[in-house]
Design a protein around this nucleic acid. Structure first.
Length: 427
RNA sequence: GGAGAGGUGGCUGAGCGGUUGAAAGCGCCGGUCUCGAAAACCGGUUUGGCGUUUACGUCAACGAGGGUUCGAAUCCCUCCCUCUCCGCCA
């Protein structure tokens, strides 16, 4: 959520910044409603003050006549206040409906463009692997190796709900273990197992509600949403709390299944595991002091890059343009792995600095040492990493001419030393 | 799921219709004392909005949201959460 006080100071400037993200944004209605709200609230406050003062007098008055006169007088004041409060509620409702739709303004360092292809490739790692045989894509590989069964997944649930079997499931768990171990043992992240179903306030804090409700699975009876990423529960751990400065920064990581309705279009090349309704991801989340948040973002990206590097994959890191970053983010880097059979790069991690956008929604604050005044802190999130996507890149990158797949060295200790996944008929 | 009890400031815990934003104790911060510390004593110690701005004024908040009332932490309704007992269950 944006800072309405800052908006008030210079609406045109604020609007210009927001338009870099979404050119259709106009703040005129918000500014007008905010002005109305403050006028009404000031008038209502004056009346409430009067009522408070006189009500106290009534409490100590002995004379019955005087009492009933004042009570009658206050009765009409109260009616007036009631009318004001009704109006204020209506204005607030209109105002916040609009404010909740607004995205986080992008940081100055983000390239301004409406074309996602204008993203800046800031780093690449390793060369593209070269193959001297005909490549299979991850679906062909995974199915022939008995790792996935998409038909039966659809039978059990729906299409785009994958079923991992045998070495598919083992490799997925190996990846998750590798990521969780590395982040917790070497990178200073505290391990978390969060709830996968969250209440509306939690989904609001992350930024998913109200604007993107149609992307979430909902348990209507219980007013709960299935999480689209562990970012959502991790970001509400300290909601409505005040943290001491000395306790910052706080790093958490969590594995979770992620559930997304993916309402809208998907390309036909997004088969297999690339875009599914349920996938696995290890998520990193940071609570930090505002002045450190952009440095923390660079560290977060470096951490994610290190994870991909250890898996021996070719990837590139992209700084996304203003119109391509998520609404809650001020600046986002994507890490894109090379998918040799598809001949394209695909996102395996997205690292964002949300600055105070989520902190304001969730009232997550800290108290700078030696001061009385609290301040909103900054939150960051990054995939570390999306294992279902990684699986695609690993299979396609490590495939062999005989249809087997070599297991990346970093994962072997989590696979009981196994070095290769081979087709059943060759075992 | 059934029956009962309860949710108050960093914590413990009073208040149950009228100077209570909230007693008291603990904790914490500052001061006195001390070579220093402890003890003792004195003072301070929630958060947010609006307006002026070191000070200050005012509104709001006692799980959340509604309602009753001139006036609500206190009464009523709905929801959420915690605890105890029973049931069920990995």
């Amino acid at each position: 959520m944006i800072d309405i006080k800052k908006l008030r100071e210079n609406p045109k400037d604020f609007e210009a910044r927001l338009r870099k993200k979404d050119p259709s944004i106009s703040l005129d209605a918000i500014v007008a409603l905010d002005e109305q709200l403050r006028v009404k609230a000031a008038e209502a406050d004056a009346l409430k003050n009067k009522r408070n003062v006189v009500s106290k007098e009534i409490g100590i008055l002995k004379d019955a006549n005087e009492r009933s006169i004042k009570i009658a007088e206050m009765k009409s004041v109260s009616d007036e206040i009631q009318a004001y409060d009704d109006q204020i509620r209506a204005i607030e409702k209109d105002l916040y409906e609009l404010v909740y739709q607004l995205p986080n303004p992008p940081h100055e360092s983000v390239p301004v463009s409406e074309d996602e292809n204008d993203k800046v490739i800031v780093r690449t790692h390793k060369e593209k692997p070269v193959f001297d045989f005909e490549l299979k894509n991850h679906v062909e590989l995974g199915v022939s190796l008995g790792m996935f069964d998409f038909e039966r997944g659809a039978k059990i649930s729906q299409s785009m709900f994958p079923l991992y079997i045998n070495e598919g499931a083992r490799l997925e768990w190996a990846l998750i273990n590798f990521l969780m171990n590395t982040l917790s043992r070497e990178k200073g992240f505290t391990l978390v197992i969060p709830p996968y179903l969250v209440n509306p306030t939690t989904a609001f804090t992350s930024g998913n509600l109200p604007k993107f409700e149609n992307q979430l699975y909902k348990c209507k009876e219980d007013e709960l949403y299935l999480i689209p990423t562990a970012e959502v529960p991790l970001g509400s751990i300290y909601r409505d709390e005040i943290i001491e400065e000395e306790d910052l920064p706080i790093y958490y990581c969590a594995y979770s299944a992620c559930f997304r309705r993916e309402a809208g279009a998907h390309g036909r090349e997004e088969r297999g595991l690339i875009r599914v309704h349920q996938f696995n991801k290890v998520e990193m989340f940071k609570y930090v002091k505002p002045e450190t948040s952009f440095d923390e973002l660079e560290h977060l990206v470096a951490t994610a890059e290190d994870l991909v590097t250890r898996l021996g994959l070719h990837f590139r890191t992209a700084l996304l343009v203003t119109t391509d970053i998520a609404q809650q983010s001020a600046k986002t880097y994507d890490i894109e792995c090379w998918l040799p059979a598809q001949g394209s790069y695909y996102e395996v991690s997205s690292c964002s600095n949300c600055v105070d956008f989520q902190a304001r929604r969730g009232q997550i604050r800290y108290r700078p040492t030696g001061t009385k005044k609290t301040q909103l802190l900054h939150t960051l999130n990054g995939s570390g990493l999306a294992t279902s996507r990684l699986m695609v890149s690993i299979l396609e990158t490590y495939q062999q001419p005989d249809g087997s797949v070599v297991i990346p060295e970093a994962l072997r200790e989590y696979m009981g030393g196994q070095e290769r996944i081979v087709p059943k008929n060759k075992k």
